[in-house]
Design a protein around this nucleic acid. Structure first.
Lengths: 104, 104
DNA sequence: CTAGTATATGTCAGATCTGACATAGTAGCA
DNA sequence: TGCTACTATGTCAGATCTGACATATACTAG
């Protein structure tokens, strides 16, 4: 992983495990985090496109404004489950979900 | 939601909330569960295609055989996070992930 | 400036998920 | 039959995530 990118992620609160790539083990951790960030971006973009505030989205899915903010900020304490549920609450289809994941 | 499908999901341990669809609120819950089941299926198929046992996959991702079994069974106590991490551990690309989600 | 609206960030008790373990079931083979 | 490998299911203490709340920041409009 690029050192710059690592710095950026650690600033968001991610703790990147040692260089397991040297053991031929992975890149899986990086893929996972990037996937999350992509979904987070997709969520923010979609919410704004719908003209919905964080509070409104939070109410629609019975969560809270702070949790929505954390989702969109890529906070590591938010689960993929919650992010995906948010996208689905906004009416995102499987096809659109796939597009968000693929986009890069 | 079809009554038959609901029965099937409840047998797996899912508790389906009341008919919120009447309030115009959703189908989001159903989408979420179906997405999970699709990923679960994709995981099982991919693992087998790789000729990997549940134990081997579990070791590769520092989980346990029982958890892998639950993932593949669509058990509701398993998070999306874990299922996605499993797929990534098997080397699934974003494009393949998207295909799994879209396939239906 | 003040008020209103939206978003960001930190905290925490309670809810949920996790790995580990035990155990049961299944399939193939000698 | 027994033996081995693989998978399924249940349980639980400890780890992680959650909604709620407080508070801070940023931007507009009056």
């Amino acid at each position: 992983m690029r050192e710059g990118k690592r710095k950026k992620l650690e600033a968001k609160g991610w703790k990147i495990g040692g260089p397991r790539e040297l053991l031929g083990l992975s890149g899986e951790e990086e893929s996972y985090i990037e996937l999350r960030l992509r979904l987070a971006e997709g969520l923010k973009a979609r919410r704004k496109a719908h003209g919905v505030s964080q509070i409104e989205l939070a109410q629609a899915m019975r969560s809270s404004q702070s949790r929505v903010a954390k989702m969109e900020a890529g906070d590591p304490t938010v689960s993929l489950d919650l992010i995906v549920k948010s996208l689905l609450t906004l009416g995102t289809s499987n096809r659109e979900l796939a597009a968000i994941i693929t986009r890069g």
